[in-house]
C-alpha cells in the first residue's frame, strides 16, 4: 500500500489526491462497520478551538472518546492564553508536548498551516476562517459514497450561497476528482465564482447553472443545500424576493427524484423545513453523524493506529 498517513497533518483538501481520499473513505467505512475498535486507546488529543464551533468540537470529542482516547482543550479563545497575547506559534509549540494530535479551529486563515510547521504532532484543521474545513468535505464525500456506492456517474446539485460558501467550494474541489455532473442552483448575486467554473472546465467536468429549483432536479442524485444569508445581498428587497426559491419544504421536494438525497452541512436555519426531516431522502443528520467514523479514521491514520 503506497499510502501512509502516519505523522501527517490534514490542513487542506489541496494536499490530497484522489487515491488518498478514497483510502480515507475505505478506512472510514471499516471504522463505521466496527473494525479497528479502540483505535485511539492510549492516545491523547487536544482540541484547540480558538474560535467556537460547538458542533465540530462535539463531533471530534465524541470520535476520540468512543475509540478510547483522552481529550483536553478549550472551546474559545477567551479561555486560552491567546487572550493574554500569546502567539499561535507559541501556543502550538507548548501544546505539542502534551498530546499525540491537535485538532484546531481558528478564525485566522492559514493558522492551521502555520501550526503544522511548528508542531511535532499531526494537526487536523477543523476550520481556518473562510479557508478550509477538510473533515466536513470528507464526511460529505463519505456520505455520498455510502448512499450510492460510488460517486462516478452521479449528478450533484449544489444550492444556496455558492459565492461565499466555503463548504460548497471545498466539496466542488473534492468532487472534481470524480466523473460527476454538477448543477449550481443559486440567485444571480450568489453564483459560483468564475475561478471555480473555470477550474471545472480545465478538468473537463460538466456543470449546469439553474436560477431556481425546478423539475430538472428530478435527475439529481444529491441536492446539497446551504443557507442564504440576508447580509450577502446589496438590496434587501432582492433577498426577500428570491429567498423562497431556495427553501426546501414538503411542496418543493416534490420536484426531486425518488432517490435524490438531501444533504446540508448543518446548522440549518430556515432553508430546510422541519416537516421534511422524516422524508427518507433527508439524510443531513445521518451525514452529520458520519463525521464521527470519518474523524476517527483520520485520527487513526495520522497516529498510525490504522494502516
Amino acid at each position: 500500500m503506497g499510502i501512509d498517513f502516519k505523522g501527517r497533518s490534514f490542513i487542506s483538501l489541496s494536499d490530497m489526491n484522489k487515491e488518498e481520499i478514497l483510502y480515507l473513505m475505505e478506512k472510514s467505512g471499516e471504522v463505521k462497520a466496527g473494525k479497528h475498535k479502540g483505535l485511539l486507546s492510549g492516545k491523547t488529543v487536544a482540541t484547540l478551538f480558538f474560535e467556537p464551533s460547538t458542533r465540530t468540537r462535539l463531533s471530534f470529542e465524541s470520535a476520540v472518546l468512543q475509540q478510547g482516547g483522552q481529550i483536553f482543550g478549550f472551546s474559545s479563545s477567551a479561555s486560552s492564553s491567546t487572550q493574554k497575547g500569546e502567539s499561535l506559534t507559541d501556543t502550538i509549540k507548548t501544546v505539542t508536548g502534551y498530546c499525540d494530535a491537535i485538532v484546531m479551529r481558528h478564525k485566522i486563515e492559514g493558522a492551521a498551516r502555520r501550526a503544522s510547521q511548528v508542531a511535532d504532532v499531526p494537526i487536523i484543521n477543523a476550520g481556518d476562517g473562510a479557508n478550509q474545513h477538510p473533515t466536513q468535505t470528507f464526511l460529505d464525500i463519505f456520505t455520498m459514497m455510502e448512499k450510492k456506492g460510488s460517486i462516478d456517474g452521479k449528478t450533484i446539485g449544489l444550492m444556496g450561497d455558492l459565492k461565499y460558501g466555503r463548504t460548497t467550494h471545498s466539496l466542488l474541489v473534492a468532487l472534481s476528482f470524480f466523473d460527476v455532473r454538477l448543477a449550481f442552483i443559486s440567485p444571480q448575486e450568489l453564483k459560483m465564482p468564475e475561478h471555480y467554473t473555470d477550474f471545472l472546465k480545465t478538468k473537463g467536468i460538466e456543470f449546469m447553472e439553474w436560477d431556481v429549483l425546478d423539475e430538472k432536479a428530478g435527475d439529481l442524485d444529491f441536492l446539497y443545500c446551504t443557507r442564504i444569508q440576508k447580509e450577502r445581498f446589496f438590496d434587501p428587497m432582492e433577498y426577500e424576493r428570491v429567498k423562497g426559491s431556495y427553501i426546501l419544504d414538503k411542496e418543493s421536494i416534490q420536484l426531486l427524484g425518488d432517490s435524490t438525497y438531501i444533504m446540508h452541512p448543518l446548522p440549518r436555519v430556515d432553508e430546510i423545513a422541519e416537516e421534511i426531516d422524516e422524508d427518507e431522502r433527508a439524510i443531513y443528520f445521518e451525514q452529520a453523524h458520519n463525521g464521527v467514523p470519518v474523524r476517527q479514521a483520520l485520527l487513526g491514520l495520522a497516529l498510525g493506529t490504522i494502516r
Binding site: L88, K107, I108, E109, G110, A111, R113
Partner: peptide
C-alpha cells in the same frame, strides 16, 4: 485575515 499579516 491571513496569518502572514497577523503573526511573524
Amino acid at each position: 485575515n491571513c496569518i502572514t499579516n497577523l503573526e511573524k
